[in-house]
Design a protein around this nucleic acid. Structure first.
Lengths: 233, 233
DNA sequence: TAGTGGTCTAGACCACAGC
DNA sequence: CTGTGGTCTAGACCACTAT
């Protein structure tokens, strides 16, 4: 008895594992429903449910009369829930790594003070982290944090935990405002993202509120050729 | 013609129609699988698939041992607000005007057929509208519509009503999927938007669902220098 | 205990792809 | 033509809820 995990879920897990492990690659044909039914000792209907759900989840592509194939992996993100980019990359079965570029104390410029509703010159924390997906830079996270909301921000180890994950943990999220635009990156961002000349960035500006204050103001820079935002309602 | 529409889909449509019509309201119990199987003259497994999918789509909530209930309606006042550009421009105190570039019947390409879950070559409606904010072009709306959902689409006057406003009126919205990316526009789009050479476009791809079908597939092109998406939660 | 959904079977027929 | 997925049946047993 494999206990309490439905057979169709075990089959889904098995297929996902094979894909993530690289045994089955994009475009590869997956064993037929008949074959999987034999292998797992279940009926074809059970395999059908597993594969149909994987098809709906865009993990595989099914073609009647032909077969089932591993779908194209997409670079995409969700705006709806403020997902951690590490989780997002992990969900695609890829490897996430981040590099801390800067972590420092600074003083609010006039523009930043306005965003945080603090006085110009008020102390802020500032971090710059580059996130990699399979060793390709996919996001530059330029973030300012309100010390009143996260006083221990500078003491965190952002190699093992993303700034976002830390903030979500210590500051209950009450509201988010965002703006998305396409612009040319400043030279230093273009370098960090290893972008071609003239390639635009897809930028998400995000401001989070917690405990009645502005908790953080972030700019998330992505190379337009390798990233897009997605979501659903 | 009941042929060619799967039984489970007919059952989903029936349930969606009852909810949209207000016969079954939020929190109401829906007939049991057994009852629906009898009513539609199908096996319980077929009803089970229909209701399970509606559960996954958050249309209904299923409780083992208890029953199936109409789910709470979702708040969707976020990125869906991007939907009506006329309202958006009016809210900024500016003047909105639109020009109809194309309005025609066409056949689904393989790619479009996949998005609509129709067969290649199936008839579709196609419209291209340019939206102006104070006489500056701000959006090219390239839209394909499922004739099964909006059969009178070609007869509308899109000078007085945006395609989106019409669709929201005739087809109850059940779901939206979107993706935002930054790309170079095709030459004809760049011209319509009077864009400078090499300027990227901010593109919103949006797919709306209604009555269990894909109602429309749209690409909304905006000049990156004059547009951005904003929202809040 | 009776009723509900959750899962599963061992067949079946069909539509479609590719040879 | 064969092999594939798409759908469907008429049962079955189980887990859970409500009474």
């Amino acid at each position: 008895m494999t206990a309490s995990v439905p057979a169709y879920q075990q089959i889904k897990d098995h297929v996902l594992a094979q894909i993530h492990r690289g045994v089955w690659k994009e475009g590869d044909a997956i064993p037929t429903e008949e074959a999987l039914a034999l292998e797992f000792g279940v009926s074809r209907m059970t395999v059908n449910r597993a594969m149909r759900e994987l098809g709906n989840e865009q993990i595989v592509e099914r073609v009647q009369g032909s077969g089932t194939f591993v779908a194209q992996q997409k670079y995409q993100s969700t705006l709806v829930d403020i997902r951690n980019i590490a989780d997002e990359i992990a969900a695609r079965g890829h490897r996430h790594r981040s590099e801390l570029q800067r972590l420092e104390r600074c003083k609010a410029t006039d523009a930043l003070a306005g965003r945080f509703r603090l006085k110009p010159g008020a102390p802020l924390f500032h971090s710059v982290v580059v996130h990699f997906e399979n060793d390709a830079p996919i996001q530059v996270e330029d973030r300012y944090v309100n010390p009143g909301v996260a006083p221990d921000y500078l003491a965190q180890d952002f190699a093992t935990q993303t700034p976002n994950a830390y903030l979500m943990r210590v500051a209950p999220l009450q509201g988010v405002e965002f703006a998305i635009e396409a612009v040319s990156p400043p030279p230093e961002v273009g370098e960090l993202l290893q972008m071609a000349a003239h390639e635009p960035c897809l930028v998400l500006h995000r401001q989070t509120h917690s405990m009645g204050q502005v908790a953080s103001v972030a700019a998330l820079w992505h190379p337009a050729s390798r990233y897009r935002f997605t979501g659903q309602f």
